[in-house]
């Protein structure tokens, strides 16, 4: 049996919102250590890797490994029925064909229960090995979201170049071009505003703006995003959870 209680429904809401436009359905793999998901979008350009560790939950038990096939649109509708501050418990028996979703209002004496029909999903799994990284950038997630939105107005591609002490984001299209350069900065009073750049090799990569638009839907999950880049390899965009992460692997574009 699986039972996982979130202190606040808002966390699961944010996770599902960040995933549902990339993949319509995916398997949630539940073990005694927590819940993980690997899902690839239809075009196999973007991969989502989610880990919700046991410590994320207020209470967690999973006696036997369970795979829950979940339609994210339906899941989103049901968890949207709870208030952000409610306790949210997900519950499934071994071999269950539904997932129980229970909201508890912390003030009123009110409990709401829903059941989501589970799906049998035969999904592609990709082998994501430990990747080498040539450059790592950590910046406020809201800043990265704004850069992606602003550059998308110019072009279908965002070019990221990283040198020793700066990262440059630029786009060029029919109406014109634009760029944003960020540099490392330590903000002791507001550590969430700090920017770090570490570099083994200079980077010059381009990514599809439409996929980046999907990735930045995770912005509310974390104040920071870490971007790991390697020349001619997928970029990794990581949003940390209180205990775990939501990662996106995005295949770059290449010049013909």
């Amino acid at each position: 049996m699986l039972e996982g209680k979130f202190e606040e429904a808002s966390l699961l809401k944010k996770i599902v919102e960040a995933m549902k436009d990339c993949v319509s359905s995916c398997n949630f793999n539940c073990t005694e250590n927590g819940i993980s998901v690997q899902a690839v979008d239809n075009s196999r350009v973007l991969l989502i890797s989610l880990l919700i560790e046991k410590d994320t939950f207020e209470e967690y038990r999973c006696d036997r490994n369970i795979t829950l096939g979940i339609g994210l649109g339906s899941f989103s509708k049901i968890i949207g029925n709870g208030a952000n501050s409610d306790y949210l418990t997900i519950q499934a028996e071994d071999d269950a064909d539904t997932l129980g979703i229970i909201f508890e209002d912390k003030v009123k004496d009110k409990i709401s229960e829903y059941n989501l029909k589970l799906l049998d999903i035969d999904a592609d799994l990709l082998e994501v090995d430990a990747m080498e990284t040539d450059a790592t950038i950590t910046l406020p997630s809201a800043d990265f979201a704004k850069i992606c939105k602003d550059m998308k107005t110019l072009s279908e591609s965002l070019q990221i170049t990283v040198t020793k002490d700066s990262a440059k984001f630029q786009s060029a299209g029919e109406i014109g071009s634009g760029s944003v350069v960020i540099k490392p900065k330590t903000d002791i009073d507001h550590p969430e505003e700090s920017i770090t750049i570490s570099l083994d090799k200079p980077i010059d990569l381009s990514f599809g703006s439409k996929y980046l638009s999907d990735i930045i839907k995770a912005t509310s999950l974390s104040q920071k995003v870490t971007i790991k880049l390697t020349e001619d390899s997928p970029g990794v965009f990581e949003y940390k959870l209180p205990s775990g992460y939501l990662r996106f692997y995005l295949a770059p574009k290449f010049d013909e």
Partner: peptide, 14 residues
Amino acid sequence: GEQQWSLLPFFGLL
């Protein structure tokens, strides 16, 4: 022009 790579050449199906 630019072409979009898929993830398959990098990761491969399990």
